[in-house]
Amino acid sequence: MEPQTSQTITVTVNGETYEREVEARRLLIHFIRDDLDLTGSHVGCDTGNCGACSVIYNGQLVKSCMLLAVQADGARIETVEGLAPEDGKLHALQQSFSDHHALQCGYCTPGMLMSAKALLDANPSASEEEIRKGLQGNICRCTGYWNIIDAVKAVAR
C-alpha cells in the first residue's frame, strides 16, 4: 500500500453501505454532510471543541471533524438520522429531549443525542455526574445544559 491523495472507501452509515471516492484530506464530517448528504450532523467550530459533529464510530463516540474520511474505510457509523426506529416513533432520548425542552435552535442536538446515546449504551443507569461528564464534549449555546441533563437523566432511570 502506498500513500495516495484520494481513495475509494466503503462505509456503512446507519446500516446502509456507501462506496465513494474521497480525497484524503476530506474530514469525515464533510464526507457525511456533503458527499453522503446526511446533513443532520453539524459543524460548530474548527478546533474539535463543539461536538456538533459527534457520531458513533465502530461503537465509540467520536467527533467526525477529528477524523479523515479515508480513515473510516470499512467503518460502521451511526448518525442522528439512524437514531429513531423505523416505525415513525422517536428514540427514547429524542422524545425525552422534546419533553424536557432540551433543545432550542436544534443545532447541537444531533451531536448531543449521539453523545447521550453512547453514554447510555455503555452505562444505562448513568448518574447526573456521569451524564455531565458524558456530555462535556458537546457545546450547547441555547439551553445552559440543565434541561439536556434532565432529559438524559429521565431516560437513564
Binding site: 500500500m1 500513500p3 495516495q4 491523495t5 480513515q71
Partner: peptide, 10 residues
C-alpha cells in the same frame, strides 16, 4: 477545517 492536500496511507 479544510486541510491542504495530503497523501494518506495506513
Amino acid at each position: 477545517m479544510l486541510l491542504r492536500e495530503v497523501e494518506y496511507v495506513r
